[in-house]
Write a protein that binds this DNA or RNA. Sequence first.
DNA 1: CTTGTTGCAAACTCTTTGCACTTAG
DNA 2: CTAAGTGCAAAGAGTTTGCAACAAG
Lengths: 139, 139
Amino acid sequence: MQTAKTLRMTPQRRVILEELRKVDTHPTADELYEMVRKRLPKVSLGTIYRNLDLLSSDGVIQKLQAGNSQMRFDGNAEPHMHISCIKCGRVADVHSGPDTSALSQEVETDFILLGCTVLLYGICPQCAADGKTSERFTP
Amino acid sequence: MQTAKTLRMTPQRRVILEELRKVDTHPTADELYEMVRKRLPKVSLGTIYRNLDLLSSDGVIQKLQAGNSQMRFDGNAEPHMHISCIKCGRVADVHSGPDTSALSQEVETDFILLGCTVLLYGICPQCAADGKTSERFTP
DNA sequence: CTTGTTGCAAACTCTTTGCACTTAG
DNA sequence: CTAAGTGCAAAGAGTTTGCAACAAG
């Protein structure tokens, strides 16, 4: 989970991180690309991907698999639950709820247990209102 | 999550289902393709994908996102926890542990809650023994 | 300086799809 | 019969990577 290399603070990296932390929408790489592009028009999608990868490997941000094929990113590296809309793919934080970190302690497995993710899924308020087109979702 | 169409029981479909249920390894589409190919040499990968899709949409099997980009499949449709090896990607069932279905009831969200998946991750016995090459993993 | 980083475009992986033919019910 | 399913090959989405030029420390 950690890179030995020193991460240089390039303008690109800084803006990516700033933009990601500015929102709580858990954007996809593409969405973040558009956000960053408004400030750095010449940035490339490859740079976005490379940075998101480095930053998540370093534990600075979180890479999320939220029920569809596209990865999403969370500027908040603290472990917390997420809920994903099966219709539109939107992802939201879940701040309440039971302590899932204890979950790991109660499990029987021959694996060396390192952690646990909980993904809730459902329908977001927007999609509940208007019956929009459905997206691919895998619980 | 359900198809209106009647699912015909073709030899391909039957063998795919049989092979999937024969193992507890949660194979990828490709792995299952190889397994099915031993019995039906002319089967196509497209057929594997189409059937896995239909069967999981029908709730006959489960499609899993287990920490890497490739989907995995579980012949056991009953909801249960999985643990994924961050090194080799192997996925195992977790039979013990707390009741995670209750989890949904304790959560505060403006989404219409439909369900919840728990993915544990760690290092499998095999990888713990020999320090093999690492794979991509996203909690 | 030196090594990490960037933009670009091409490559890659996994999955989906269009089509003409086949087949289960 | 006829709608569902198949094999094949091509297309698609999302992500990764090789390379030469660039820049942070």
